[in-house]
């Protein structure tokens, strides 16, 4: 486990900036003097309190499987890929949101894109190809993706047209449990 290097931090934050409006709040000091930091272990990036990260240093690298919240994976090509485990953090700080109706939640959780007919409502002024967090109508975060059209364009779309490409959904907890958390 180690802190991220400068370029790594940059790629991670560049990715997060797609979804989150305010990155500063992510790492701002908390009330009790603690703060959240990013840590890298087995090419997974973790978002964790500093105190916990410090305590976890006593665990050997091979035996440390996870700490705090896993944001995603730094690939060998130097890119950063967000995992579904980052959803609570993205949902908290989301810039753009899409709410899907009850009949659209199930298909989305089974791994399909969001079609226009399933959209209950969405945030205005959303440009094309920007990250959105997908919620159910009961405000439960279900996953995230990128918009296929800007909000204005999507209005003219027919009901079966895709408005949001899925990137991750909660169903992955069941489907990809083996690959999601490589030890």
């Amino acid at each position: 486990m180690r802190p991220l290097t400068e370029p790594e931090t940059k790629t991670v934050f560049a990715k997060l900036a797609n979804y989150c409006s305010d990155l500063k709040t992510l790492i701002a000091p908390l009330d009790d003097g603690d703060r959240y930091v990013l840590r890298l272990n087995h090419s997974r990036v973790y978002y964790v309190r500093l105190s916990i990260a410090n305590m976890a240093t006593s665990v050997a690298r091979d035996q440390l499987l996870s700490l705090g919240t896993c944001l995603g994976k730094l690939t060998k090509t130097g890119k950063f890929r967000l995992h579904i485990t980052a959803l609570p953090i993205l949902a908290e700080h989301a810039r753009h949101k899409i709410w899907v109706k009850e009949n659209g939640a199930q298909p989305f959780l089974y791994g399909s894109n969001v079609v226009k007919a399933h959209v209950g409502r969405w945030s205005e002024d959303c440009p094309e190809h920007s990250g959105v967090v997908v919620f159910s109508m009961a405000d439960i975060p279900l996953g995230f993706g990128v918009t296929a059209r800007s909000t204005a364009e999507a209005r003219r779309l027919d009901p079966t047209g895709v408005v949001c490409f899925r990137q991750a959904d909660c169903g992955e907890y069941l489907r990809d449990e083996d690959t999601l958390f490589a030890g």
């Binding site: 309190r49 035996q63 996870s66 705090g68 999601l180 030890g183």
Partner: peptide, 25 residues
């Protein structure tokens, strides 16, 4: 057990526990 720990990590993340360190001793 490392294999069982995967389910453990999955549940921890799914349920939104952020104060957990998972180790395999």
């Amino acid at each position: 057990s490392k294999t069982r720990a995967k389910g453990l990590i999955g549940n921890i993340h799914r349920l939104g526990a952020r104060n957990v360190v998972v180790c395999n001793y």
